[in-house]
Design a binder for these strands. Sequence first.
DNA 1: GTCTATATGTTGATAGAC
DNA 2: GTCTATCAACATATAGAC
Lengths: 185, 185
Amino acid sequence: MGRVSDKRERLIESACKLFHEAGFKDTSIADIAEDSGVPLGNVYYYFKTKDDLAAAVIDQRAETIKECARQWEENPDPKARLLSLLDMQESMKEQIAQYGCPVGSMCQELDKDRQPISEKADGLVNWQLKWITEQFRLMGQAEADKMGVQLMTALHGCGVVANALNDPKIVELEMARLKVWIGKL
Amino acid sequence: MGRVSDKRERLIESACKLFHEAGFKDTSIADIAEDSGVPLGNVYYYFKTKDDLAAAVIDQRAETIKECARQWEENPDPKARLLSLLDMQESMKEQIAQYGCPVGSMCQELDKDRQPISEKADGLVNWQLKWITEQFRLMGQAEADKMGVQLMTALHGCGVVANALNDPKIVELEMARLKVWIGKL
DNA sequence: GTCTATATGTTGATAGAC
DNA sequence: GTCTATCAACATATAGAC
């Protein structure tokens, strides 16, 4: 049974979790090594630099988001797809209140530098905005662009405010409001 | 003329700028010392730790925000006060697109730890939410609480999205929409 | 109050045995 | 491929002369 080592995956998984919970700069390679059970020196066999590991985390997050979108797209009704997105956000309210939105907080933190890695993170937001806008367009909304921005800012605003106030109710409240809004369209 | 040294103020000013532009963790005491023209070792005469300096920055930011609120409150019409807030946000759109919202991005970054300093930053968001909600209440809105959350999430969502996309138009678009909304109330 | 020199600790990354 | 030992750089913070 030539079973392949899963160390690379474990490293990404640990980094994904720790970057979200503690932030990129406050998570050391040693922290990730310990959490994943991979010895420190061995990390560099899989990832040449810490930024490379971060890039892999962002890629994995992109894959997760796109997989969600694929599932929602099994429903032909674009309105229902958006409601699914809001449902998911609501289900993550505790996590968001405690650590912030995984995508938004990472973008904010990495965007402070001007590295290629921050552009990669920003690409996630760009992709998300385009997907949302496309759903509004499919709903026949003439102002789909504006509505896309409106929904995106509401989603990411929730992350910041709920996290600052440490209150999942903020997410709950906003998702309920947005569902009513989308439902009426 | 026993003119008092302004080094303390210069340190806070530099830290305020650099924390916003580069983030708290990527700004070293040496960076702040250089930018303010104060020698490295002398910084510690004014601030015992880096966190103490950050606390002073947050205090100064709180003072700025409260001073704005005081000015807006010279207008007895709460609706006009909210429109003034939206005007200010719009006027900062370039800065927000480049470095993010000064308050929001700082809260996100500091909230990853659980230090007293993060609570101080979060207090800013809390104060802002209460002020906004109070204006809705004064306007006679029965759902003032919900509206306050709605406006706050929109404002802070703008910061994240405009920064990620590096596009001041996001702020412009959202502020225009919010002005129409508030105007109709 | 001011400033130079430096202690002390942590981090990202590498060397090299196995 | 794996892992220990360690380097080199940089950060916060302090000591102590002036």
